[in-house]
Nucleic acid binder design. Structure first.
Lengths: 131, 131
DNA sequence: TATAAAACCTGTAGCTACTACAGCTACAAG
DNA sequence: CTTGTAGCTGTAGTAGCTACAGGTTTTATA
């Protein structure tokens, strides 16, 4: 049941150093300690840590996760708030996708200039450099 | 013709502090100085800086840009090398897009759980927290 | 011409989210 | 009894800026 940091790391997929880092930031509560001073975690730590990891996987910032954790562990979390919050986040993700798609397009165009055309320097660089 | 840092910033769209930062990193050569010690830039600085900015806009790292600059200013830049380099970068952009699309999908699913279902806590958080 | 505002200078510290040491102790296996 | 693994603390490094503090210089206005 109770775990040391290595097991917790394996179970949750969060690096040991990162777990300690989250503790410093108070994203997870201070665990108990064994006699030798080793951290001892309970199931609730594992849950919280997995939550954080899932949120990170969705590109939420640690500040955002702090808010989500508060909400998740509140007595009556306001679903409406979370929804609004998450919609904004979804918009952000979509904006990032749009930006990257633009880059992809430009890169593709630049690369197509490259084809065959190798006699006089690099057209790709020329376009970027001469503007 | 010769510009002070403010004008260069306006012309290239790179923040003043960033220009000085790039100088520290030797991404742009040290400019001349006026009598009072103010930086004085030439057209070649502007060109180089714009190149950096365009590359940043394509998500190239400063280390990558360093390489591209070297190549761009070499006597006979190897187009084949640049092409290979850029293809790898394009792959990276595409990988990022894929990741973000996955996130987008997940977020959409999570948000759809939210609809209407507000009586018993927040399903979005439940999935992340209990999942 | 006086003065105030804007622009410049250097140097340092802060941001995000980790990651990587150095240098130590604890503990289990052979 | 030694060796290896796992844990500990504390600090510094990473990328790419950004934001001061505390000073000088230039420029615009009264």
């Amino acid at each position: 049941m109770l775990k040391k940091i290595g097991e917790l790391s394996l179970k949750t997929g969060v690096h040991i150093e990162t777990i300690r880092y989250y503790e410093r930031l108070r994203l997870i509560p201070k665990p108990g300690r064994s006699e030798a001073g080793h951290r001892v975690y309970s199931e609730s730590h594992a849950k919280r840590l997995s939550f954080i990891r899932r949120c990170r996987g969705l590109d939420f910032s640690l500040a955002e996760i702090r808010y989500l954790l508060q909400t998740a562990e509140a007595d009556n979390p306001s679903c409406a708030d979370v929804e609004k919050f998450s919609k904004k986040h979804l918009d952000l993700i979509r904006a990032k996708i749009r930006d990257l798609r633009k880059m992809e397009k430009t890169m593709k165009t630049l690369l197509s200039e490259c084809q065959g055309n190798r006699a006089l320097g690099c057209p790709l660089i020329d376009v970027l450099y001469e503007g």
